[in-house]
Design a protein around this nucleic acid. Structure first.
Lengths: 187, 187
DNA sequence: GTCTATAGCCCGATAGAC
DNA sequence: GTCTATCGGGCTATAGAC
């Protein structure tokens, strides 16, 4: 394990605070205190707080896809691969104490006032949906009279609904429910 | 039309700003400027900014249910009544330029740090779901072998997913998609 | 490339005149 | 019950020593 560089530590600390407290509720002073650096050092590595926000988005997106790849690496059967995505999102929610989706959260907080953030989140959710589409198409090859597009949209929207709802209710019930629903759509 | 009282104007202005800009990004000074009052008057009617936040939540919840009642007043057929809920949420999204659900938004921004807000949003979403359950039960009476509970959860989660997704994509596509899905669940 | 000090601004909230 | 003036503190960001 290589020693963590200063810049990486700043991003890690800031990301954690942005997610847990919100971007606007996290001050520069808190970031430098928890990262144990001086404010001059922070502004040597990042030009502004918004610059940190961009690094946060990129980091979380990279880790999101890498995390799913690792989570589902051993699964090759298409239906199980789809279900492992539900399991992945459920796992993320549990390990974050139901903190919610990073991207929905930041979008709700600063999205409308920052086109950079809105665009990033929109594209990210598009990537998620395309990943689902690939999984569904892999499943659909063996089936006839199967509407892959509608199934893709349905799985995507059910997951988004389940994530938001599990965040509000602070439990994983909605994931157990959508698992039944999605299994029923994959005969 | 009665003349709008000062207190009502404050709530109206603050609510609008909280929704469009976010709670943390809205300052007291902006509220009093747009409401055209002095800061002393604001603190005569409300004890704190958090007090205003509570008034905002109550106002939005009241208007949400009243709005649906009016929107669906002329519809008595159970299936159409359910579909009118989708139409209502779609209408809300369009008229707010896809600003998203008030309650999901405030929950994402300050929910975790404020149990009062988290609890309110959780209860509010519970009320929404119970309303859906009543509508679905009204429909289910005429059907056999119909899983009202699972259908209720499915409709609720699809709507939540559609609202979040339409907010991110700034269009109503997801509502058109869930309409197909939900119609298919109501044979 | 790390540090301290501080500028310049805005925040929520209060005091007290009228 | 509305107003103005102001407090104390936090904010992001910069300047400049080392």
């Amino acid at each position: 394990m290589k020693k963590e560089k200063v810049q990486e530590r700043i991003i890690r600390v800031a990301s954690d605070l942005f997610y847990r407290q919100g971007f606007n509720s996290t001050g520069i002073n808190q970031i430098i205190a928890e990262a144990d650096i001086a404010i001059g050092s922070l502004y040597n590595h990042f030009t502004s707080k918004n610059d940190l926000l961009q690094a946060y988005l990129i980091k979380e997106e990279t880790e999101w896809f890498k995390g799913f790849e690792e989570h589902s690496a051993k699964i090759s059967e298409p239906k199980q691969k789809i279900l492992s995505l539900l399991d992945y999102r459920k796992k993320l929610q549990k390990s974050s104490k139901f903190g919610g989706c990073h991207f929905i959260k930041i979008s709700a907080e600063v999205g409308d006032s920052s086109p950079v953030v809105s665009d990033f989140v929109k594209k990210h959710k598009g990537k998620q949906k395309e990943m689902i589409r690939t999984l569904v198409n892999g499943y659909a090859e063996s089936k006839k009279e199967f509407d892959a597009d509608l199934t893709t949209e349905s799985i995507f929207l059910l997951i988004e609904g389940a994530v938001v709802t599990s965040t509000i209710n602070k439990n994983a019930d909605s994931f157990d429910q959508i698992q039944k629903m999605i299994e029923a759509q994959l005969p």
